[in-house]
Nucleic acid binder design. Structure first.
Ligand code: FES
Ligand code: FES
Lengths: 151, 151
DNA sequence: ATAATTCCTATAAATTTATGTTGAAATATT
DNA sequence: AATATTTCAACATAAATTTATAGGAATTAT
């Protein structure tokens, strides 16, 4: 129906991975590890992390022993912020952000429809934090392990 | 944040346009007119209308005097159907439709997040019909005309 | 026959997705 | 202090997909 870009998908998983290894903002995770753990090309991750850094969601530490780390605690990072950083605009269609984008905006019936859907999404992602995602992930990992043992 | 493709945007406007001119499924509208009214390239519209036809949302009448028309009344066409026809899949990420798409699905925390968002959207577009969109559009056109007169 | 229209196929342009190459900065080691 | 190593940073390029344009064949009404 409506597709989340790979930037959005990979970038969010990158953030969850950083969150999983986060202790304090001085202990960094190297991108190579993230790439291996998540099965994503490291070269591509390097590009994806840039907007996250620009938007102050991650911190980079250069040189040996360096890497990336969350800029704040996972519970203080909203999913909405991550997606906005990665996808730029925060709406289903351009005209919601830039009214001059569509010429027929004054009479276009779909405008209100896309706006309604965008508001639903914004509200949803506004309520979720990176910590929420990490919790879901941890629970799934635990369940997978348990199942593996009992077999 | 999450982008609706031009296929989805243009295709929905095409459907609204057909709905506006719909009287019965024998009186067809030619694509050239839709293209002019909506400000979309006719060549591109020709491609966009194909999936709508395949999914039995519009009927085509070939030859001179032909054109396109809704296959049913606007009130009987759900927005969800239109988007599904145009965008193919009906979910924010592939893995919701095809579990083999993501390898880490068993432990991925974002899966549930994207599923939640997809369900919100599906539900929203399931409740809306093409007639709803047409009504909004008609209301906006009337308001625009009134404003124009009173000036 | 002619004109109007959809239908089909090809191709071009733009954007997104992904990989490769080199360089710069910080750190660890000697 | 010098050197080597590790890591991010920047730029370039390739592949795939989406977006858009073009030409002409098939079909139908007049
Ligand atoms: S005004 Fe932008 S899609 Fe209608
Ligand atoms: S994004 Fe598909 S399983 Fe995580």
């Amino acid at each position: 129906m409506i597709k989340l870009s790979t930037k959005g998908r990979y970038g969010t998983r990158l953030m969850v991975n950083l969150a999983r290894h986060y202790k304090n903002s001085n202990e960094a995770v190297i991108l190579k590890n993230v790439a291996e753990e998540e099965g994503i090309s490291i070269r591509y991750l390097e590009q994806i992390v840039i907007p996250l850094k620009i938007n102050k969601l991650v911190k980079s530490i250069r040189g040996a022993g360096g890497g990336y780390t969350l800029a704040r605690k996972a519970s203080e990072i909203k999913l909405c912020e991550i997606l906005q950083a990665l996808e730029g605009s925060c709406s289903l269609v351009e005209c919601l952000e830039d009214e001059s984008f569509c010429e027929k905006i004054k009479t276009c019936g779909t405008y209100e429809i896309w706006k309604g859907a965008t508001d639903l999404l914004k509200n949803y992602f506004e309520r979720l934090t990176l910590q929420n995602v990490l919790d879901i992930s941890d629970k799934k990992i635990a369940a997978a392990k348990k199942k593996g043992k009992s077999k």
